[in-house]
Design a protein around this nucleic acid. Structure first.
Length: 439
RNA sequence: CGGAGUGUGGCUCAGUCUGGUAGAGCACCGCGUUCGGGACGCGGGGGUCGCAGGUUCGAAUCCUGCCACUCCGACCA
């Protein structure tokens, strides 16, 4: 992409409404535009990152055996009356009436609809286990939206729903999602720790919130420091194998949010020098809730014994749009964002310090072509801004690499390569620089 | 939902107390000089001062009502 043809409205001033660093940086970097309280337009740069985060979530869900579909944002109220949640949900649900006076709602979640789809087609235990997911916009009419995309009213969420014949099988489905979440967040450069959460109606310990430690997090958390250094399962993990050792490793020590915090237990289980009290951002959560919805909505399958069984269900959410805020909270400095390579909107920024200078233009075009064909997604700054402004923009939007092309270096056959994360710069030949970036 | 604020050009803000021709910086357009970490000169475009009523010879400014947004708290399957 050429910056002169792109749409990147960066701001020098920080908009007054932004209180936390991720919100400020997203506005300043031209990623986001607020249209109403808690409702945002995703500008091109923000949209690119959103898509990359979404794709990582999708790949890890697919790897774990979940199957993607797409449900609508609007749902019929009658569906929610089947589970009893239409009246129970309260003011957070955005209710709409269509031209025929039918009551509808903008979905805050999809347990009812997925159960309706499941029961329409699935009659046999042989179809289980089944895990269906989608990545779709949700709306929850928060009383007080804040912190940009961290707590918006409209937000992009991945929600998966598992169906199993019995509780033991349901536990295996839960564990697959648990491991998939470890991998998902790790790939985005985040340390997300699963923490004990309020359990569903079935009790037990089958609910976890995955929390990224950050000073601006909304909840206080208490955990054993040793969680921070645990290994993440590799891409070759066998989801058909017994995953309980991994889940046990990630759950046997203390980690809890303040809602369920038990000081006595914390101090008994965790040596003082291993305790961390911090704040955290919830980026995902897993629930196992048994037959709550399958029974209420009469979604049964016939088992090997010939009897009708209500499938054991779980639901698994990831706040896709919130993740952008969490990533920035975890990875920025005083001048801008520092994107992890895996989610960066562009792989490298090429800075032409003297557009119109034949030699500079030529080197930039060569680099642009080579990086494009290598799939490194370059963003070429071919504008006539001042050099200082170009550097500031590149640092603000946080691309992993900057390739700086100026008349001084070009005369000597060199360019400058800068790594955003470390600030390290080296002067190299163009070929050596391209090789270092991976082109 | 309780409490507290703020609405003036794309952004940050002054002007409101004490009514009298709407301002600054940044951004934007033109010309020129510049050019390796947010340049400079000259010229220029852009605002029903959140909305509606009221008071007044005259309202961004005073009064009433409404709306939007922000912050603190409560809430957050």
């Amino acid at each position: 992409m050429r910056l002169s043809r792109y749409f990147l409205p960066v701001l020098k001033n920080t908009p007054a409404e932004a209180q936390i660093v991720s919100h400020r940086l997203m506005l300043r970097a031209g990623m986001l535009r607020q249209e109403a309280a808690g409702i945002y337009a995703w500008l091109p740069l923000g949209h690119r990152v959103l898509r990359k985060v979404e794709q990582i979530v999708r790949e890890e869900m697919d790897r774990a055996g979940a199957v993607e579909l797409l449900m609508p944002t609007l749902q019929l109220a009658d569906l929610w009356r089947e589970s009893g949640r239409y009246d129970a949900y309260g003011a957070e649900m955005l209710r709409i009436t269509d031209r025929h006076e039918r009551e509808m709602l903008y979905g805050p979640t999809n347990e009812e609809m997925i159960t309706e789809i499941f029961r329409a087609y699935t009659k046999s235990y042989k179809a289980l286990p089944l895990n269906l997911y989608h990545i779709q916009w949700k709306f929850r009419d928060e009383q007080r939206p804040r912190f940009g995309v961290m707590r918006g009213r409209e937000f992009l969420m991945k929600d998966a729903y598992s169906f199993d014949i019995d509780e033991a099988e349901g536990r295996k489905s839960y564990d697959r999602m648990f491991v998939a979440y470890l991998r998902t967040f790790s790939r985005m450069g985040l340390k997300a720790i699963p923490m004990r959460a309020e359990t569903g109606p079935i009790g037990g310990d089958l609910s976890h919130e995955f929390i990224v430690l950050a000073q601006t997090g909304e909840s206080a958390v208490f955990l054993d420091k040793r969680y921070l250094d645990l290994p993440i399962p590799g891409a070759d993990i066998d989801y058909q194998s017994d995953l309980t050792p991994i889940v046990d490793e990630w759950t046997h020590r203390y980690a809890a949010t303040e809602d369920v915090h038990d000081t006595a237990r914390y101090e008994a289980e965790t040596p003082e020098y291993q305790r961390i009290t911090a704040r955290g951002i919830e980026v995902g959560q897993t629930f196992f809730f048994g037959d709550k919805y399958s029974r209420a909505m009469n979604a049964s399958v016939q088992g090997p014994d010939g009897a009708e069984h209500f499938p054991q269900m779980g639901s698994y959410g990831v706040g896709v749009s919130r993740l952008l805020g969490a990533i920035i909270e975890a990875s920025h400095d005083e001048v801008g964002i520092i994107w992890p390579d895996t989610v960066a909107p562009f792989g490298v920024g090429i800075v032409n310090l003297r557009p119109g200078d034949a030699a500079c233009d030529s080197v930039c075009e060569s680099a642009y072509a080579a990086l494009t064909s290598a799939g490194r997604e370059p963003l070429l700054d071919d504008t006539d801004d001042r050099p200082g402004g170009k550097f500031a923009t590149m640092d603000l939007i946080g691309l992993p690499w900057q390739l700086i092309v100026g008349p001084r270096g070009v005369a000597e056959g060199t360019v400058e390569l800068k790594r955003r994360a470390t600030g390290e710069r080296q002067t190299l030949s163009l070929d050596a620089a391209l090789k270092a970036i991976g082109a």
